[in-house]
């Protein structure tokens, strides 16, 4: 920081504002996804969507450690990453509904939201599909001396893809500013990760000499703390990092995955929701620390809810692209 020394009260106030901002972001993701579920249930949304509910602290804790021109790549479960990086809910909903006002003019949909204005290189529906792209963006940042960092989000299912290890090796050899963020929500689709993943996860990255860390992905303060350190290190030329975030998705693999008992129990789901909820954990801490009161948090919830309702309305009323668009933008 190059700022002049601040009074302790100012420091405390900025810290409080920062956590409250993160709380609001997490609420935004949660309520956005609830609207998505609703749109699907009401048959207003074509196709499927993979909800991020339960994992909010990961995207928010990490993206809050980034500059707006830093890069991210995302996954099929990407709404949370896009929102955390600064995308607007109305244009996201429009994209989910295939409307022209969407971020990709309706050509990408739920799994492909991309937005250069917020450094979002795109969500990717190929498991591990964006690991090369994120690492390449880090190469550009280093070569062009822009000081940007790239964050590559992926689920633990991507640990099965060889290309991840190819690019981690390269990133470490070339000291590229890229953070590989593995969101372990325990399930590769409908299969517990322990059935697909041998050995110790961080040890895989550590084998390349990549700096690794594990964190409780339900605790936004912990995620943010470690992300800040890793991002800073990457920005200062310290090379790549691998961050394992232990988390859980509350809903099905996608919105249509309703009956889940053949792969996980209702008790397990309930335990995470009651004991490990990222919103509850942060709000309890905020209240305990007297940084916020219940009334403030309630107000945030209702403000965000209104915002989401307006955003959905915008998207529902937006128009579809003209069919002549189908052949546009195949080539630049």
């Amino acid at each position: 920081m190059t700022m002049a020394a601040q009074s302790p009260e100012t420091v405390a106030r900025t810290a409080a504002e920062q956590w409250i901002r993160m709380y609001r972001k997490m609420v935004s993701i949660r309520l956005f996804e609830e609207q998505v579920n609703e749109l699907y249930t009401r048959a207003l949304m074509p196709g499927l969507a993979h909800l991020y509910i339960g994992e909010e602290a990961v995207a928010v804790g990490i993206c809050e450690a980034l500059r707006s021109d830093d890069y991210i790549t995302s996954t099929h479960r990407g709404h949370g990453h896009c929102l955390a990086k600064g995308a607007a809910p109305d244009r996201m909903f429009a994209e989910l509904l295939g409307k022209e006002a969407g971020y990709c003019r309706g050509k990408g949909g739920s799994m492909h939201i991309a937005d250069p204005d917020t450094g979002n290189l795109g969500a990717n529906a190929i498991v591990a599909g964006s690991v090369g792209i994120a690492t390449g963006a880090a190469l550009s940042a280093k070569r062009l001396k822009t000081n940007q960092v790239a964050v590559c989000f992926f689920g633990e299912g991507a640990l099965g893809q060889g290309v991840l290890y190819e690019v981690m090796n390269i990133a470490q050899l070339w000291k590229l500013p890229v953070i590989y963020v593995c969101e372990n929500n325990l399930y590769n689709e409908y299969t517990h990760y322990s059935e697909t993943t041998a050995g110790d996860i961080p040890a895989r990255a550590a084998a390349f000499g990549v700096q690794t860390a594990s964190v409780d992905g339900q605790d936004v303060r912990a995620v943010h703390g470690i992300a800040t350190r890793l991002v800073q290190n990457a920005r200062n030329g310290g090379g790549p990092a691998f961050l394992l975030c232990n988390t859980y998705r509350y809903h099905g693999h996608h919105v249509g995955d309703i009956n889940r008992e053949y792969y996980r129990s209702k008790e397990e789901e309930q335990r995470w929701k009651t004991e490990r909820d990222p919103l509850k954990l942060l709000s309890a801490w905020l209240i305990d620390q007297k940084l916020a009161d219940a009334a403030l948090l309630d107000r945030i919830q209702s403000e965000v809810r209104k915002e989401m309702e307006a955003a959905v309305k915008f998207a529902v009323e937006a128009h579809y692209p003209g069919v002549e668009e189908v052949e546009q933008d195949v080539y630049a």
């Binding site: 290189l121 090369g132 690492t135 963006a137 550009s140 070569r143 062009l144 290309v163 390269i170």
Partner: peptide, 28 residues
């Protein structure tokens, strides 16, 4: 060697880097 870069034998990996680098300002 900043511009003519030897890679590991990782065709998928360095092609992927090419895509990302091309998106963000290089012309690989």
């Amino acid at each position: 060697t900043e511009r003519v870069i030897d890679t590991p034998i990782s065709e998928a990996g360095f092609t992927g880097l090419g895509v990302g680098a091309a998106m963000t300002g290089l012309r690989p």
